[in-house]
Computed example of a mutant assay.
Amino acid sequence: MTERSHVKLLIIGSGPAGYTAAVYASRAMLEPMLIQGMQPGGQLTITTEVENWPGETEIQGPELMVKMEAHALAMGAEVVTDMVTRLDLSSRPFTAECDSGRVVRADAVILATGAQARWLGLPSEEKFKGFGVSACATCDGFFYRNREVIVIGGGNTAVEEALFLTKFASKVTLVHRRDSLRAEKILQNRLLNHPKVEVIWNHELSEVSGAETPMGVTGAVLRNLLDGTTRQVPADGIFVAIGHAPANELVKDQLELHNGGYVKVEPGSTRTSIPGVFAAGDLTDHVYRQAITSAGMGCMAALDAEHFLAAQDGVETVPEQLVASIA
């Protein structure tokens, strides 16, 4: 039997933005429901050391997300393990249909679905996904103990993945399209001074080489972007770490997007192109994309939602009063 419910505020997504929104909305007595999605905890659950979360010199990503979930629950949020498969924003109350058959109607919605790993789009990459090609070193690094691996990319994601893989692999080769890295300087220094790491500059992955029986990666064909020549580099695994794309599947045909698919919000707010629908975190942030900024946007979304719902009920509020009410 289909489970149906009606809530004031529905939060979709369970990363720093979603859980922070749940904490603030609960303290505002909005009795929010948070639906965790396919990856409860978001991208931080596949991150190891987090060194830039205020108050924590170092904390494991999964541990941080466990704490945030516990905080939301302690404040009174209803946290549901399910995944929204369809979201109708054509009229209020909005309607969310879940994988389990659950149907939720909500007076306001906060979207905090985050982002998903980007892929290169190579046929050989697709062929060997799960058979030596991965986008998650934390998930799969253990399988490459004393083996050689390649990481594709040059930003924070790629450098963090490469450094993590040095714990297991005998050699890590980082392949980058440019002649310098885009990662934070402290991460660059760690990578470039690591004895297990080799960097191949000005190259891109042209093809994944592999065997059919058993299915598995044996190396990579790299193309030199300066002269067009190619070279074969042996490897047992290839990790694609070229960033993430906003997870906008639920709303891409309903909300205004920009900058390659990010949900557009009004400057200085989390309000989207549909009144009563708010967006926070990596789904809307194409500039900073940090856990702490996502959490800040989750706070903003909860405040914006409280203000919106109060206005619908005919209650006069101003942002300063809202802040004071939950401080």
Rank of each mutant, 00 (worst) to 15 (best):
L89Y: 13
I59Q: 01
V109I: 01
V315S: 12
S90G: 10
A169H: 05
K171A: 03
I35W: 05
A327T: 15
D107V: 02
A106W: 09
P234Y: 03
N193Q: 09
R27Q: 10
Q232P: 07
V66M: 15
L257D: 10
A311Q: 13
E31M: 05
V133H: 12
P32R: 05
T45V: 02
G260S: 05
K171V: 04
I292A: 08
A28E: 11
T138I: 13
C136D: 15
K167N: 11
V103N: 08
V172L: 03
S100W: 10
A235M: 05
R147S: 01
P319A: 12
A220G: 02
L73M: 07
G237I: 14
V323K: 11
I46A: 04
A279H: 07
V172E: 04
K196D: 09
V175C: 00
G15Y: 14
H244E: 08
S134N: 01
G121K: 07
H194N: 15
G61T: 04
K129M: 15
S14A: 10
Q321K: 06
V159A: 01
E184M: 05
G219Y: 13
C98K: 05
A302Y: 06
A135E: 13
L44N: 02
N193S: 07
T57W: 01
R145P: 00
E49C: 03
V217H: 12
V7W: 11
L205D: 07
F168P: 00
L9Q: 11
N193F: 15
G114M: 08
E212C: 05
T2N: 06
A279I: 04
E63P: 04
A28K: 07
H203Q: 11
N52E: 04
N189V: 15
A21M: 02
A137I: 01
T284G: 07
L205V: 04
T229I: 09
C299G: 02
A22E: 05
V79E: 03
G15E: 14
V175H: 01
E256P: 07
D88K: 13
R86T: 03
A295E: 03
A70Y: 15
K167A: 14
L225E: 02
A291M: 06
I11Y: 09
G130E: 02
S170W: 15
L10I: 06
R4P: 14
G76C: 05
S273Q: 02
R86A: 10
G114I: 09
R182I: 07
A112I: 08
A72D: 01
S100V: 04
V277M: 00
M75D: 00
G55V: 12
T45E: 03
F308D: 01
A96N: 06
T2Y: 14
A70V: 09
L225S: 01
R190S: 05
N248Y: 08
V197C: 10
